[in-house]
Write a protein that binds this DNA or RNA. Structure first.
Lengths: 143, 143
DNA sequence: TATTATTGCATAGCATGCTATTCAAGTGAT
DNA sequence: ATCACTTGAATAGCATGCTATGCAATAATA
């Protein structure tokens, strides 16, 4: 068999993901946040005061990964945790004022990266591209 | 501004990349290799007896990342290094017999992951998808 | 040729992801 | 009420990626 990396979806996806992460990293560095915190912040900006388990249901990472990232976010003053009156095992996770204030800038950074990266595609290619990713992700998740 | 993660190229790409990596990891685990070694093995299966710098020219990762992965590959008996008669700073990197023997199985594993993951797209969507990724990568790399 | 600059790699330190394991708190069945 | 089961989260240990820095060998230049 022969194998061409430039024809391999997996190879291309990995490469593209690293390029996106680097770009976003550079964009959001001035805000004092890092890429791994982004998905968590997105959820908390929509709704905070939630448990780790709640977050886990919305972000497709392992529980240990989430727990570690939350620890770093607490260390960095982005979240704080309070007792959960309903269950002593879980805590409630809240954004700090600082994190709350970062929202607009973060949205704009992400939007900028997305827009610039997909500039090379035309409108219909962009739509198709996003749709294909959604399809692939859904099919892979439900295996 | 509002921001929908399911419409965000970056978010989708990151998610998809993790799904692919997990899948490939499971496929190649029986071979005794891990995903980060894959791009390097692909190059070395084409041509070994090369320097780290040669490899670096073919794989878009940082030099330190490559150096670390090569160390683990040496530890795992996948490569060995010999003196470079032309330059004492560099060494030549060679596949071991064990690594050489893994090629077909690895190609097949990767092919399988790609095929199954893109099953959800039809022929023309697949082609378009791969092409879009190539365009996006090329434009992001040359910034 | 002696000095300076560049180059090839290695290493330190960190973030993000994973699997596996542990532990305390809650739930259920007897 | 007790004992077993489940669940929410933390932790250990590792791979993969990054930036920054250091170092020895080579190349270039004064």
């Amino acid at each position: 068999m022969d194998f061409k990396k430039d024809d391999s979806a997996g190879y291309l996806i990995n490469h593209m993901a690293r390029l996106f992460a680097r770009e976003l990293q550079h964009q959001i560095a001035p805000l004092g946040i890092v890429v791994g915190q982004f998905p968590i912040l997105l959820e908390l900006w929509l709704k905070d005061g939630v448990t780790q388990k709640d977050l886990l249901g919305k972000i497709d990472v392992e529980q240990a990964t989430l727990a570690n990232t939350l620890n770093r976010m607490e260390r960095d003053g982005l979240i704080k945790r309070t007792k959960n009156p309903a269950d002593a095992r879980a805590q409630l996770i809240w954004l700090t004022e600082r994190a709350r204030a970062l929202r607009e800038g973060a949205y704009e950074s992400a939007q900028k990266v997305n827009t610039e990266a997909l500039q090379v595609l035309n409108e219909s290619e962009r739509t198709q591209f996003i749709n294909s990713m959604r399809l692939v992700i859904n099919s892979m998740r439900s295996d």
